[in-house]
Nucleic acid binder design. Structure first.
Length: 365
DNA sequence: TATTCGTGGTA
DNA sequence: TTACCAAGAAT
């Protein structure tokens, strides 16, 4: 219908808004400058499910340690994991390294420009392939991230819940395509979602597309995107064992490459499960200890919340002679350099808990 | 298609 | 304090 065509959001209006409100971000080329594919790629990987604020410092540190894709490809994976520690979703770091090696070897250090080729690289999915193709190379691509999903679902008042509505949202997003400036348009859509069309209390008065927005017309903008109800988050429990050697070393292990916190350094723990009873007898709690020793229990629990479960760890501590050998699968590291290890946040909390307990009760049995 | 995968900030 | 959320990918 003619009326519908008149109310279609105008790409030019969004691009004009973008030009007036261009944000400066560490990885973003300034107006008129060519984007660096390596920086675009690195930032896009870091920004997956991660806020700009959290990724920023990591991006700058990575760029300093690994100025180009060749440097990153040549680095040991261990160094990459250490630098990534604390940012979360650690398979990203492993895939980042694998991708750098693939680009260095398969593409002679130059990122491919097409979505299809980018999609074949480790850690690059539909969103990231489109984003790199558009932002780094100016190619036509429909870039759909969480921001774009929200913007589009409101513009068209999409009633179907996500993630089922993703194909529809993608088609609608493609219908908004501009005649050119693909990279700017993609970033404009995401900036609009990040700064105006926010999850809560969107600033519709400042939105260049408030006119054609269906949800805005109905006053229901905060109800989109519709989402399927989430599963309840269970709590798993376990026991962590802090072993300090008299020469200032602590006992750690490396986690298996696959799965939760894959390849990262951990403090030894027993199994994590909902049925573990942290009020059990000391003997029961010590059953899974990595070595025989006199354990004392730190007060309270070290807690951490993952995406799909919460974790509560009782912390048992002990001190052993300097000659003590590390059990199979474990190793000693200097406590003084623990901060530089590839230790995820959950285990950093265990360390703080254990050391705090030792300080506040130095002669606890 | 549904799960699994972190972390820190915010209301 | 709880719940939600952030430039998703892999399986």
């Amino acid at each position: 219908m003619a009326a519908a065509a008149e109310t279609l959001p105008d790409p030019a209006a969004l691009l004009a808004w973008y030009d007036r409100n261009r944000r400066t971000l560490p990885w973003r080329a300034s107006a008129g400058e060519a984007a660096d594919p390596y920086r675009v790629w690195l930032s896009e990987i870091m920004l997956q499910q991660t806020t700009v604020k959290a990724a920023g410092p990591y991006f700058l540190r990575f760029l300093k340690s690994f100025p180009d894709v060749a440097k990153l490809a040549a680095a040991p994976l261990e160094d990459v994991l250490k630098l990534w520690a604390g940012l979360g979703y650690y398979s990203r770091a492993r895939n980042l390294h694998a991708c750098a090696k693939a680009v260095a070897e398969r593409y002679r250090g130059r990122f491919p420009e097409s979505e299809g080729e980018l999609l074949s690289l480790p850690g690059i999915g539909a969103y990231t392939a489109a984003a790199i193709s558009a932002i780094a190379f100016g190619r036509k691509a429909t870039v759909v991230d969480g921001n774009v999903e929200r913007v589009v679902s409101r513009l068209f008042a999409v009633e179907a819940p996500t993630p089922g509505a993703k194909p529809l949202i993608r088609r609608l997003a493609a219908s908004l395509s501009p005649p050119g400036r693909w990279g700017d348009f993609a970033q404009a859509m995401m900036d609009l979602g990040a700064t105006i069309c926010t999850p809560r209390r969107p600033a519709c008065a400042l939105c260049p597309w408030s006119g054609p927005c269906a949800a805005r017309k109905a006053g229901t903008q905060e109800l989109y995107p519709r989402k399927a109800p989430k599963a309840v988050r269970p709590t798993r429990r376990g026991v962590a064992f802090w072993v300090e050697r008299e020469d200032g070393m602590a006992l750690v292990r490396t986690r298996p490459e696959k799965g939760l916190l894959g390849g990262m350094t951990e403090i030894p723990t027993g199994r994590w499960a909902e049925d573990v009873d942290l009020d059990a007898t000391p003997a029961a709690l010590e059953a899974e200890a990595p070595l025989a020793a006199r354990w004392s229990r730190a007060s309270g629990l070290a807690t951490h919340v993952f995406t799909h479960f919460a974790l509560e760890l009782a912390v048992l501590t002990t001190r052993v002679p300097a000659a003590t050998a590390a059990p199979d699968g474990a190793r000693w590291v200097p406590i003084a350099t623990l901060d530089g290890e590839a230790i995820p946040s959950a285990f950093r909390k265990v360390v703080i808990h254990a050391i705090g307990a030792a300080r506040s009760a130095p002669q606890a049995r």
